[in-house]
Design a protein around this nucleic acid. Structure first.
Lengths: 325, 325
DNA sequence: CTGAAAGCGCTTACAG
DNA sequence: CTGAAAGCGCTTACAG
């Protein structure tokens, strides 16, 4: 069945350099318990290179009993830009320890088909969704490996919502509104953020913020905001779920001729690269997860060895003040 | 070393259901060449489920000699939104055949560290970069599996550039400018797009389009565009590398008080979700890769069996006319 | 219809 | 210092 060239194995390298497979393995893995003469070592390495030998990972993993793969489970349709950045950093960090980060995005549909897990054998999972959701829980469980929580917990999300309100209120007293996306895949986070916003309102003795679901089309967004604003006199303070929602709100406001930030102040979340180029430039916030990242990496390493993990510190919240609020 | 629970193997299932490992395998893989009594079959399945048995993939792959993994190699820092969508679709399609799509983003740095390939064993690679780049070529080569070209070739990119010009010229005669991003990771594509734009200029008897490198910060972008526009009288037609660049151009133009599209028309590329929310709403284009996707999936399947692949048809180019051009 | 056995490629005690 | 051997978990000829 398998046409084409044969796989090059450690056996080939052994033969080519006139040693046993054991010695090849010792040399290539730099086993400190063996002392191989420099000459032999050189020869093995040279032959391996010449043959283009790559150890066949599945065999190695079978032997070791566990892979060096970390799986990030992201149960949303799209990865928010802020999260994408964090994952990239995590990946870079893990590579230094010989680990590879693999992401599953939009697990809900995938899980229902042939289990994608069939092809990937992580030794640790980092979960960014609601682990209490039974569908997600059972998806995670089937891997039978430790599951860590990514830097995306409810407490953090609430704090962000609250901080948006704090900033808006500090600027001047406003009717606080929470702008939510239509997409359903992320409502878990939306809820947490909303809770934070409402908590902020309570803290400032303000009425509870209404939810403004921002339509995904521009004319609809405009109509919706017109309707929203007609209910109450301004000025408004609009806490957006993220920068993408904020762009839609900005456009709707502009189309309606509402002046920003005077009549309606808008604050986003994520500080995506595009945020500085909105009109007006978007005031926003983001998580600076450096220390949390360190802790997460440590936990991943521990978990992969079967050791206990520690509490990850909250990332700190950064505010970027531009022109929209 | 390995603490915690033992792995559940097919042996456990065999013992629990009072059959041999062979039978377990036959049942669980639905081997059509065996006729197992319905009762035995039921029992095996039940026990496997009860024990939560999952075949250990590395062992399976070692036996089979090849995985069911397809690796997408994306040698850029970030994945453009249009590409991200295409990958998502590809993944969905492949899952139906039992394959898993895994992406490596930003391979240039990764490749220089511990070879990430050590942990992943694809049976086919889909490459979205410049395969003639020696660094990329050697990265791809080490996997020793068939490499297919993703839907991202130069001819396509050129056509997009040319089509941008065609549209702009059809609207009215303008000084054509090509707006390129600062980021270096994607210059391979930028060049192809630029070639297309210049080809379009030539076709219409226009002078060759100058390249406007758009700074990543708003004030710098504004200063740069002021400088650009001072060289020649308008009106301008600005072909942007993608929608993100277009957002920056729009902001710079607006800050300079240039009227869009009258004095400067702007056309983007990708039709990202945010495109409709720019001010003014962005005119842009994108690839509709449906038929190409079918062909790519077929090729992946063929290649994984060691069979020959066929030419992938060009995706068609869609124009979205909004207000910026 | 079922089971004992071989073998995929690797690493690592173990014997020399 | 080096090599023969065992064994990770799986599937699949092969023998019965």
């Amino acid at each position: 069945m398998d046409k084409g060239q044969q796989r090059i194995t450690s056996n080939d390298v052994a033969k080519a350099s006139g040693v046993s497979r054991a010695t090849v393995s010792y040399v290539l893995n730099n086993d400190p318990r063996q002392s191989i003469p420099e000459e032999t070592r050189k020869r093995v390495i040279r032959e391996a290179e010449k043959l283009g030998y790559r150890p066949f990972t599945p065999a190695r993993v079978l032997r070791a009993g566990h892979s060096q793969i970390v799986l990030a489970v992201l149960p949303f349709e799209q990865v928010d830009p802020g999260l994408a950045l964090g994952l990239k950093e995590l990946e870079t960090r893990l590579v230094e320890y010989g680990f590879t980060l693999i992401s599953y995005v939009g697990v809900q549909q995938l899980a229902s088909k042939i289990h994608p897990s069939a092809n990937v054998t992580p030794s640790v999972i980092v979960s960014y969704g609601n682990e209490k959701d039974p569908a997600i829980a059972s998806f995670l469980q089937q891997f039978q490996v430790p599951v860590l929580s990514g830097m995306n917990n409810q407490a953090m999300q609430q704090l962000s919502g609250k901080t948006q309100v704090d900033y808006l209120v500090k600027q001047s007293q406003r009717h606080i509104v929470f702008a939510a996306p239509e997409r359903q895949d992320v409502q878990f986070v939306v809820q947490a953020r909303l809770n934070g916003v409402r908590q902020g309102c309570t803290g400032h003795g303000l009425p509870s913020a209404p939810v403004f679901v921002v339509p995904a089309s521009r004319p609809a967004a405009r109509a919706a905001i017109q309707n929203l604003l007609s209910h109450q006199p301004g000025p408004y303070g609009i806490c957006c779920y993220n920068d993408e929602v904020a762009f839609a709100v900005l456009a709707a406001l502009t189309d309606e001729g509402i002046s920003i930030p005077k009549e309606a102040a808008v604050i986003g979340f994520d500080n995506i690269p595009l945020a500085q180029f909105s009109i007006p430039a978007l005031t926003t916030m983001y998580f600076d997860g450096q220390q949390s990242l360190d802790a997460l990496v440590e936990n991943i390493l521990s978990a992969s060895r079967g050791e206990a993990t520690r509490q990850v510190p909250q990332p700190s919240l950064k505010l970027i003040v531009r022109d929209s609020a």
